[in-house]
Design a protein around this nucleic acid. Sequence first.
DNA 1: TACCCGTGGTT
DNA 2: TAACCAAGGGT
Length: 288
Amino acid sequence: MPGIAAPLIAWYRGSARDLPWRRPGFGAWGTLVSEFMLQQTPVARVIPHLEAWLGRWPTPADLAAAAPAEAVTQWANLGYPRRALWLHRAAVEIRDRHDGTVPRDVDALLALTGIGDYTARAVAVFAYGDRHPVVDTNTRRVLARVVDGVAQPGPPGKADLARMTAELPDDIGEAAIVNAAAMELGAIVCTARAPKCDVCPLAAQCAWRAAGYPASEDRRRRQAKYEGSDRQARGAVLRVLREAAPAAVLLDDVVPDWPDPVQRDRAIDSLISDGLAEAEGGALFLPR
DNA sequence: TACCCGTGGTT
DNA sequence: TAACCAAGGGT
């Protein structure tokens, strides 16, 4: 196995997308915000929201000084609004525990609300240039194909970090590029559907290609239907609160014609439980 | 571990 | 057009 680092680095230098968070001097806070937004939301949808967010709150302290409601409102339709709440909490934690500076230490990053294995290492590597394995779904798919010879990766786990570490060059700068390049390759070449193997820098050494592209047994759970789901109900309720903010909305006026009133009430209760809404005096509003 | 959590573009 | 997919994390 010749190793994937050298061809990945060469390919990345010539083919990587020009993305805002890759600009020199983008800053650790910008990187952190971008990573929150990129959790399960496509790049193209993130970019305009990211720039607006950083324009409004250029530092963690700026966001920490705002009400959670403002963060949830600014999050708009990016989806998974708990991320907005968690990003706000992380900003408060950064202000209170780290003197307003995004921490560099992976364990300190992991201790922040809403930051897990991927985001913690992404900040440490892309913002601070340290040497850690950064493993996202794209990286796992690339390794599954090139190294394991299977179409799709198994379930994510701690072992992913060790196997990515094994692919990283000793040179810190090169290690950071390999992390970014594996993600980038998975995002634009080694895609889930219709991979572009004719332009892949790893095609010559790809075990999946050599094996004739065997299909993986599909152990993936089908994504739950959105139409009629609790998630849709929550989304509808939260949209009303966002559009009314900072005003509260009478409970009777919160999606009053929702087809299933029991589901509507369940959505409201779960939003309150998550801290995304508060109720008082028969009215519902975003957390202040 | 399995499941839950939004939204909109693509096939 | 219904299903798939998207730089995950918390519980």
